[in-house]
């Protein structure tokens, strides 16, 4: 008798559990808010400002998607995630998209069942040391104690780098960037390693940034980009093309300032298609015709987001480097809006 009960329960459970695979777009619209996963705080990329408003380069991507989908750049619920919790949060549906300087790797894309929609920052792992150590190359770090954020690709790269160069080191795993800073400053570790952009952001927050140097070696490729769950391709398309719209806008010279007059129609058919005065690209995505216009107005095009948050005029002071448009010798290259 017991057996049949179990089987019955299993059947019932099986029936109820075939829950519809999420149509994320409908969920977001019904909720009226986009749940966007960001870091727990990395100045320039995602951190709450003095008023508690989230601000930063990754935050800009979240706001652009919210503006494209909901028409309101402030309709975002920012969910702080650590290196360890981010993938579970995305896989379980707690967040709709993750914009948390996450490296696009084969296994994350294929094995973890996520979909990287593009790259918003080309990065690489670097090392930061106090100037007084007098180290000029990462290869001189034999025997050093290295602070490292756990749950990231950096700890794998680090192991590979030191093994390849046959030098020893002592890893000190740290949960978040905020916990790593005091340990590094107190001298509990000689070296802090993470993505070069993160190092710049961390150093900018120090009392005396000039006492620390970022070593010239970049030991890995870290293409950082937003990602969504595997399987909901419509939602993936929306996030992908919102990011592309920001990049294309810079290439086409569309800025938050001139977007008003440009949306009325221009001589350039690509701008017209992008901003919705020509063609039906928005309809194809299941959004309004002016989706891209809203996304770009939210925080400006890619260049404006970059300059405002992490560019050379900010405390973080990153140059465009690889992240310049392909026309300027960089790697940013949006597929055409057609």
């Amino acid at each position: 008798m017991k057996k049949t009960v179990i089987l019955g329960a299993l059947t019932v459970a099986g029936l109820t559990a075939t829950a519809a695979a999420a149509a994320t777009l409908d969920d977001v619209k019904a909720r009226g808010k986009l749940n966007c996963g960001v870091t727990t705080g990395l100045v320039g990329f995602a951190a709450p400002d003095a008023n508690g408003e989230w601000d930063g380069f990754d935050v800009g991507v979240c706001r652009a998607v919210a503006a494209a989908v909901l028409g309101d750049a402030s309709a975002v619920e920012f969910v702080p995630t650590t290196g360890k919790t981010r993938f579970t949060a995305l896989a379980s549906g707690e967040i709709d998209m993750l914009a948390r300087n996450t490296t696009w790797t084969f296994s994350r894309d294929v094995d973890l069942k996520f979909e990287f929609v593009g790259i918003n920052y080309y990065d690489g792992q670097g090392f930061m040391v106090p100037k007084e150590l007098g180290v000029s190359s990462a290869k001189e770090l034999d025997g050093a104690t290295v602070c490292i954020q756990t749950g990231t690709t950096t700890e794998l790269n680090l192991a590979d780098f030191f093994r390849a160069n046959n030098i020893s080191y002592e890893p000190v795993p740290i949960e978040t960037n905020a916990e790593a800073q005091p340990l590094y400053l107190e001298g509990a570790c000689d070296v802090y390693t993470t993505d070069a952009s993160g190092l710049a952001a961390t150093r900018a927050a120090f009392e005396d940034p000039s006492a620390h140097v970022v070593l010239p070696e970049i030991i890995s490729k870290e293409p950082l980009g937003p990602l969504v769950r595997h399987g909901d391709h419509e939602w993936g398309d929306i996030v992908r093309w919102t990011l592309n719209a920001l990049i294309a806008a810079e290439e086409l010279g569309v800025t938050a300032a001139n977007i008003g007059e440009m949306s009325g129609g221009t001589d350039n058919p690509e701008i017209n298609r992008l901003l919705g005065s020509e063609g039906n690209l928005g309809e194809m995505l299941g959004l309004d015709a002016d989706w891209a216009m809203k996304a770009i107005s939210a925080g400006g095009n890619y260049a404006e987001l970059f300059e405002a948050n992490i560019g050379e005029s900010t405390a973080i002071g990153l140059s465009r480097g690889l992240n310049a448009q392909w026309t300027d010798g960089g790697l940013l290259y949006s597929p055409p809006f057609r």
């Binding site: 009960v5 179990i6 329960a9 019932v12 459970a13 099986g14 109820t16 559990a17």
Partner: peptide, 10 residues
């Protein structure tokens, strides 16, 4: 048993 069966199958 039914509850655990449900949770597992879920």
């Amino acid at each position: 048993v039914g509850l655990f069966g449900y949770l597992l199958s879920n």
